[in-house]
C-alpha cells in the first residue's frame, strides 16, 4: 500500500505544487492586504453596510470585514469550498476510474496488489495531497505575517483550515462513490460538481428566502464554518463531514471490490428491463 501512496503522491506532484503555490500566494496576498483594510477604520464598514443583504449570504458576514477572522472569511474561506471542491471532485472521480479508463489498472492489478491496497493507497495518497495543498496555503499566510501585522497566530490559522478540510473530504468521498456508481469519470465529476456549485448557491439562497431555509439544512455548506472556527470549532460538524466522506468512500470501495475491471475506456449504464435482464453491459 505504501508503494501506491508514494506513486499517487508522485502523480499528483504537479497538482500539489500548482494548487499549493496558487492558494499560498492568494493567502499571502490576502493577509498582506489586511493592513490596508484595517487602516481604513470604520470607512469600509460604512461602505459595506450599503451592500445588498443578499450578497452577504454568499460571501460571509460583512459586519466582521474589518476583523482578521471576518476578512479571511470573506476574501479567502468563503470561496474555498468551490475552488478546492473542483480539485476534490477531479481527484475523487479519478481515484480508480482514471487508471481504469486509461487502461493502466489491468496491469497494476496483475501484480501482487490487492484491490483494497490499491484503493486505500490511492485514497491515502490523495487525502495527503489535499492536506499538503492546504498546508502550503496556510504557509503562505504565515509567511505574510513576516511583513504584515496580522493578529491571528499560526495555530489559529490552522484551525481555520479544518472546516475546509472537512467539506473537501466530503466532496472527495462523494466523487469516489459516484465514480463507482456511474459509468464514467466524467459523469461522476459532473454530478459531484452539481453538489459543489449547486450546494454553494442553494445554501446562499436559503439564507435569503424563507422558502429555501429548510433546504439549507440538507446541504454540506450549511455546516461550513470557515474562519469562524477560530472563535469555536464545531467538532460535531467537522466529524459529520469526515463520517459522510468516509462512508461514501467505503461504499465506493465495496463496489470496486465486487465489480469487474474494464480493460479500458468508459463503462455503460447497467439498465435492467422488466424481466430483470441487463440491456447494456460493461
Amino acid at each position: 500500500m505504501i508503494t501506491i501512496v508514494k506513486q499517487t503522491l508522485q502523480r499528483l506532484r504537479g497538482q500539489i505544487i500548482g494548487w499549493g503555490i496558487a492558494l499560498g500566494l492568494f493567502g499571502m496576498m490576502m493577509v498582506s492586504f489586511f493592513n490596508t483594510i484595517a487602516g481604513q477604520g470604520t470607512k469600509i464598514d460604512d461602505l459595506l453596510k450599503l451592500y445588498p443583504k443578499d450578497m452577504m449570504a454568499f460571501i460571509g458576514d460583512f459586519s466582521q470585514y474589518s476583523t482578521p477572522v471576518g476578512f479571511l472569511n470573506t476574501e479567502f474561506f468563503s470561496m474555498m469550498p468551490i475552488i478546492l471542491g473542483i480539485f476534490a471532485l477531479l481527484v475523487g472521480s479519478g481515484l480508480v476510474a482514471a487508471d481504469e479508463e486509461n487502461g493502466n489498472l489491468d496491469l497494476i492489478l496483475a501484480h501482487p496488489v490487492s484491490r483494497s491496497s490499491f484503493f486505500w493507497g490511492r485514497f491515502g495518497g490523495t487525502v495527503l495531497a489535499t492536506t499538503l495543498i492546504m498546508a502550503i496555503a496556510w504557509l503562505g499566510m504565515i509567511l505574510a505575517k513576516l511583513w504584515a501585522s496580522f493578529s491571528l497566530d499560526p495555530a489559529q490559522l490552522a484551525v481555520a483550515f479544518l472546516p475546509l478540510l472537512g467539506i473537501i473530504f466530503l466532496y472527495f468521498g462523494v466523487a469516489v462513490l459516484m465514480s463507482m456508481l456511474l459509468p464514467s469519470r466524467k459523469l461522476a465529476a459532473m454530478v459531484t460538481a452539481l453538489l459543489v456549485v449547486g450546494g454553494f448557491l442553494l445554501n446562499g439562497l436559503s439564507k435569503i428566502g424563507t422558502k429555501l431555509r429548510d433546504v439549507g439544512y440538507l446541504l454540506p455548506n450549511h455546516y461550513y464554518q470557515g474562519a469562524d472556527a477560530i472563535h469555536g470549532m464545531n467538532w460535531k460538524w467537522f466529524l459529520g463531514y469526515v463520517v459522510v466522506g468516509f462512508v461514501c468512500s467505503l461504499a465506493g470501495y465495496l463496489l470496486f471490490e465486487r465489480r469487474d475491471i474494464r480493460v479500458m475506456g468508459e463503462g455503460q449504464w447497467r439498465i435492467k428491463n422488466f424481466k430483470g435482464k441487463t440491456l447494456n453491459s460493461e
Binding site: N102, V113, V263
Partner: peptide
Amino acid sequence: DPVKVRSLTGYLPGELHLE
C-alpha cells in the same frame, strides 16, 4: 487468494497501457 496468485504470475495484457 488473488495476491498470492499474482505474485506467482507474470502477465502481459493484450491491450497494453503504461503510465
